[in-house]
Structure formats: structure tokens, C-alpha cells
Design a protein around this nucleic acid. Structure first.
Length: 208
DNA sequence: CCCTGATTCGC
DNA sequence: GCGAATCAGG
């Protein structure tokens, strides 16, 4: 496969959307994430605009050659690095809700929290919370069992092969995602697939 | 172990 | 220009 205009366009769009290289690669098909990353660099858009996306691994490990496109050869005024403080379109909330209580043992220097609204991630279709009255007791028990073993992943820890079943109350700190290995092709682990995709038929009168 | 992006370098 | 191999980090 080659980098047609169309594919490059898709790449640009997804990359600036905060999609990971591997996701883009899968979307495009016929390329690996390495190819995508390579292309991204060649295109000179290694730095995603907007800042807070999925750029968790943008560590300044070795930014000596590539990440220095600055034309600052001779005159460098006291201008600091321009940092976009107001991303045009935030989409992936890093930490929804629930400001955690500080230990408050050290310095009295509480981080100022501006008018930050407690944004509930409503962007992506989350699995329907089981309304307990529609789920068989056994399935419930099964889920409870699984929840003990859950990896308790945060939003950002979720991948395509981690169970995305939410556990707890999003408005509190008791909230995490199952995170166990998903059933191939499904967004949840086996147990949660079981309660998530119940056939209409077997919903009523289950064995007893 | 899973993942992320960054860099190098032969093609 | 391309991308696999490798590196470095989470």
C-alpha cells in the first residue's frame, strides 16, 4: 500500500484527533503502526495540536534531532515556548469528576482548580449499566465475582483488549473499569459479555 | 505483558 | 520516501 492523498488525509485527521498510531494503522490497513509513525514524522506533524489527547508517551526522552524544527538559528527573543492553553476541541477527559482529598500533610500549596466542570465522559457509547432488576441473580453473582478480580483500570488504561465494563459510581472515586482480557471481538470480558449481551429470549424466566 | 511514540538506517 | 527494527517509556 502507498500513501495516497486519501490515506494521508485520514492519517492527519486521526492523528490530530488523538488516535494512536496503531489505531490509525488498523483503520488504514496494510500498514503497521511503525509506518504510521514514520509517516507522521515525515509529514512533520509529530506534535499533536491540542496537547491533552492520548499523548501520554510524549516524554522528552530523546528530543535532540527530530523535535527541533525551530528556526531559531540566530535571534531568539525571550519568547517562551508557546503552549496552547485552550485546545479547540477537547475530547478525551483525562480524569472525570471526583477531586480526591489531598493528604494535606506536606506544604500548604493546594493546586488551584479553576472553574473546572465535572465533565462526565458522554462521548463514547458506554455499556448499559445493568439495572439489577433485569439481570438474573446468577449472572449478577458472576459479575460480582469478576469485579473482585477486576484490574480496576482507569479510563486511559483501556485498550481494545481490556474489558470496558464500568464498575462503581462515576461520580465517586469508586469507579473503574473491569480491565480483564476481552472476549475476542467483544468489548468485554467473558463474564461481562454474558450480562451485556443477553438474548431477549433467555432474559425472562431463566433456569432455576 | 500490554501499550505508546521516537529514532535509526537499509532499502 | 518508506517502514522494520529498535529503543525508551508508561
Amino acid at each position: 500500500m502507498s500513501w495516497t492523498d486519501e490515506r494521508v488525509e485520514t492519517l492527519k485527521k486521526m492523528w490530530s484527533d488523538g488516535q494512536s498510531a496503531s489505531q490509525i494503522a488498523k483503520e488504514l490497513g496494510g500498514v503497521t503502526r511503525n509506518a504510521v509513525i514514520g509517516k507522521v514524522h515525515r509529514l512533520g506533524l509529530s506534535n499533536r495540536t491540542g496537547g491533552t489527547a492520548a499523548a501520554a508517551a510524549t516524554t522528552g526522552t530523546r528530543a535532540d534531532t527530530a523535535a527541533t524544527p525551530e528556526p531559531a538559528a540566530a535571534a531568539e527573543p525571550a519568547a517562551e515556548t508557546p503552549r496552547p492553553s485552550a485546545p479547540p476541541k477537547p475530547e478525551k477527559p483525562a480524569r472525570p469528576a471526583a477531586p480526591r482529598p489531598e493528604p494535606a500533610t506536606m506544604s500548604a500549596n493546594p493546586p488551584p482548580s479553576p472553574a473546572r466542570k465535572a465533565i462526565i465522559p458522554a462521548g463514547q457509547p458506554l455499556p448499559p449499566q445493568p439495572s439489577a432488576n433485569e439481570i438474573s441473580p446468577e449472572a449478577l453473582a458472576s459479575v460480582r465475582e469478576v469485579e473482585k478480580k477486576a484490574r480496576r483500570l482507569g479510563l486511559m488504561e483501556l485498550t481494545e483488549r481490556t474489558c470496558k465494563w464500568p464498575i462503581g459510581d462515576p461520580a465517586t472515586e469508586d469507579f473503574w473499569f473491569c480491565g480483564l482480557s476481552v472476549q475476542p471481538g467483544k468489548p468485554y470480558c467473558e463474564a461481562h459479555v454474558g450480562v451485556a449481551f443477553q438474548p431477549m429470549s433467555s432474559r425472562r424466566d431463566r433456569r432455576r
